[in-house]
Design a binder for these strands. Structure first.
Lengths: 204, 204, 204, 204
DNA sequence: TATGAATGAGCTTTCATTCAT
DNA sequence: AATGAATGAAAGCTCATTCAT
C-alpha cells in the first residue's frame, strides 16, 4: 500500500503508527520553536533525525495533512485535559472559571503544544481553519449562553464576549514568549476576576 | 539611487516616492488578501502591474525592508487617526472607551490595513517585533495605570488587563473574515461595557 | 539523504558516490575552461548533462562545499602522485629536484586539474584558503630547512625561497595557457638548475 | 556626446577627467580590498559615494573598460616609478637587481595598487590579458638576454627564468596579505641573491 | 554632465513532491 | 516499511546596462 492517508488508525501497523507519532511530535516542536512559516519537511526531518524527507511523504499524503495531524494531536490532548476538569462545574460562573484557569494551566505545562497550535491556526491565514477554532469559541459561548439563561450573567452579545475570552487565554503563549517566567496561574486568576466582573448580573 | 532606505522622505524624488507608495499599497493588499506566508515579490509585482520584481528590489533594499515599510505605513495611519480622537479624553474611563471604540471604527474603515498589520506582526514570528506592538500595549496599560492612580479603576495586574484589551480589539479583523457584515461599532460598545465593568472600582 | 556533507565516503551509496564524482569532475573542468568567476551551477549542469541544477544542490549542501570538494579532489590526486615520488629522495637537493620535476610532470598530465585548483585558490580571494596552500609551501620549506641543517644549502630566508619555488612551479599552468606545446619536463629541469645554483652552499 | 570612450584624454572636460580619476581610484581600492570577483558597479559606487551606478556607466562604456582603465592606471604608475630607477643600470646584473628591488619597494609603498593589478590579471581568467602582463615579462627577459649576450649570465631558457623572476616579485602582495609587517626590502634582497646565484656564469 | 528609473538575465538556495526500487 | 535519487517551480537577490530627461 503506497499511501496511508484515509486509513483508520487501526488499519495501520504498529511501527507505522509509531513513526507517524514521531513525525507529528517533531512537527509540533519545530513549529513551536521555528515558527509556522519556517517549518519545512527538511527541517522536520533534520529535527527528528530522519534520513530523508521521503519518510514524511510516505506517512503523510501531503504537508497540509501533516499539519492537520499535528493540530489534531494538540486538540485531542487539550480536549482530554479539559474534559476531566469541566466535570466539576455546576453553575456557569464556575464553569467559566474552570475553563479559563484550566486552559492557562494547560498552557503552562504544554507551552510548545499550545504555541504550535496557535501558529498553525494563524499561519494558514486568518479564518482558513474555521473547523478547528470555531468549536473552541463555541464552547465558551455555550457557557455564556447558559449563564445568561440561568440569570447568572447580564445581557451581552455572547459572541463578542466569547471571542474576547478565547483570545485572552490564547494570548498566554505570546506572553510566555517574552516573559518565560510568567505566573500562568496568576494570569488565569486575573482573567477570571476580570470576566466575572464583566459578565455577572449587576447588583441592584 | 542605489539605496532608498534611511533617507528622509524629502530626499526622494517625486516619482520615486510615488512608486514606493504604490508598491507599499500593493504589498499591504496582497498580505491582507493572500496572507503573510503567501506574499512574494512576484505576487506583489503581479498585483501592482509591475513589469518585473526587479522594480521592487530597486526601490526597497530587501523584502524585510518592504514589509517594515508596509507595517510602518499602517502604524502611521492608525496613529494619526487615534491621536485626533484621544485629545477628547479627560478621565481614564473615557480614554479607554475612546481607544477601544476608535480602534474598532478604524478597523471597520481600514480592514485590509489592519489585517495586513496583524499578519505581519504574527508572520514574522511571535514576539519578534516587540518594538512594533509593545508601544500599542503600552498605550493601553498607560491608561489603566492612570485610572488606578486616580481611583477610577480597581486594583488589578495592569499588564494582564492591557494585553486582554489589546487582543480583544485586535480580534476584530479575524471576526470580520468570517462575518464581513459584523457591526464594528456595536462590537466596540460591547467591549467598552465589558471592560468598564471589569475594571471599575467596586461600589461599596 | 538530505545532506551528504560530513559523511565518510563509505556511508554513501554507490550511485550517490558516482553522481558526486561526476559533478566534481564536471566542476573541475568548467572551472579550468571557463574560469572561477564564470563557474555557476547552470554551467556545470549543462556541461555534465544534468537535468537541472537541482541535482547539484541535492548532492552538495552549497556551492562552497562543491568547490571545496573539487579542490580536495585535485589535492588528493596530486598528493598521491607526489607521495610515491618523494620516497626516492635521500638528500635535500634530490628531494627538491623530485618535488619540482614531479610537480611539473603532474601539471603536464593533469593540466585541467592544476588550473582548476589554482583558479579556486585565487578565486576565493587571496589568502582566504591558508589551510589549502600553506601546507604545500610548508612542504618545500621543510626540504629547504633540512638542506640548511645538513649543510647542503647556503644560508637564506627559507620562507622567501620556498614561496618563490612554489610560485615558480605554480606558474606552469599559466604558461601552458599561452604555450600549449611547452615542454614541461624541460621547464622543470630549468627550474631545478636555477634553484640548485641559487640555494647550494657556495664552493670555497 | 553620449559616450566618452575612444576620446583622447585631451578631448574630455576637466570635471569629466576628474570624475573618471575618482572612479578609477575607487575601483582600484575596491578590487584590492574586496577582491576582483566581489567588485561590482554597486560596490564601487557605494565606496566612491556616488549617487548611482549610472555615473560609472556614463563615464565608462562598459565594466571591462573600467577595469582596463584601472589596470592601466597602475601600470602607468609603476612604469614611471621603474623608468627612473632603471636609468642607473649599466650591466645586466645591476639592472636585474634594480628591477627586483624596485618592484619590491613599489609594492611596499603601493600595496593596494599592486594587489588590484594582480587581482585584475588573474580575475579575468588566466591568459586573457596577455597584452597587459606579457610586456612586463618581456622586460625581465630582455635584461636576461642582454646578460647572456654580454657573458654575465650563464646559458638558460630566458623565458623560464624571466617568468620565475616575474612571479617571484608578484608574489609579494600575496605574502603581505598574511604577513602585513613583512620587510619588503629584505624580501627583495633575498630574491636578488637567489637569482644572481642562479643566473650568473659559473666560475671555472 | 548628471541623474533617477527601469529592466531582463542570472545567481544560489529551498520547497514539497514523485519515481523506482 | 523504507529509502536514495531526482525534479520543476519558486523564492529573494544582484548583476551590468539602457531609457529618458
Amino acid at each position: 500500500m503506497l499511501v496511508n492517508e484515509g486509513l483508520a488508525d487501526g488499519a495501520r501497523s504498529v511501527t507505522g503508527t509509531a513513526r507517524r507519532a514521531q513525525i507529528v511530535t517533531a512537527t509540533i516542536e519545530v513549529i513551536a520553536e521555528a515558527g509556522y512559516g519556517q517549518t519545512s519537511f527538511a527541517r522536520i526531518a533534520e529535527y527528528a533525525g530522519l534520513s530523508s524527507t521521503r519518510l514524511i511523504s510516505y506517512h503523510f499524503k501531503s504537508k497540509s495533512e501533516l499539519i492537520a495531524a499535528a493540530a489534531q494531536e494538540v486538540v485531542d490532548t487539550i480536549s482530554t485535559f479539559m474534559a476531566a476538569r469541566m466535570e466539576g462545574g455546576t453553575d456557569a460562573a464556575s464553569m467559566l472559571r474552570i475553563y479559563i484557569e484550566g486552559t492557562c494551566e494547560f498552557t503552562a505545562t504544554h507551552r510548545q503544544q499550545m504555541k504550535a497550535l496557535i501558529e498553525i491556526v494563524l499561519g494558514d491565514g486568518i479564518g482558513d481553519l474555521p473547523d478547528t477554532d470555531q468549536p473552541a469559541i463555541g464552547h465558551v459561548e455555550q457557557i455564556l449562553l447558559m449563564g445568561q439563561a440561568s440569570g447568572e450573567f447580564r445581557d451581552f452579545d455572547s459572541r463578542v464576549v466569547a471571542t474576547t475570552i478565547q483570545r485572552a487565554v490564547e494570548g498566554l503563549p505570546f506572553l510566555l514568549e517574552s516573559q518565560p517566567d510568567l505566573d500562568c496561574a496568576a494570569y488565569g486568576r486575573e482573567l477570571v476576576t476580570l470576566f466575572e466582573l464583566g459578565t455577572r448580573r449587576s447588583l441592584p
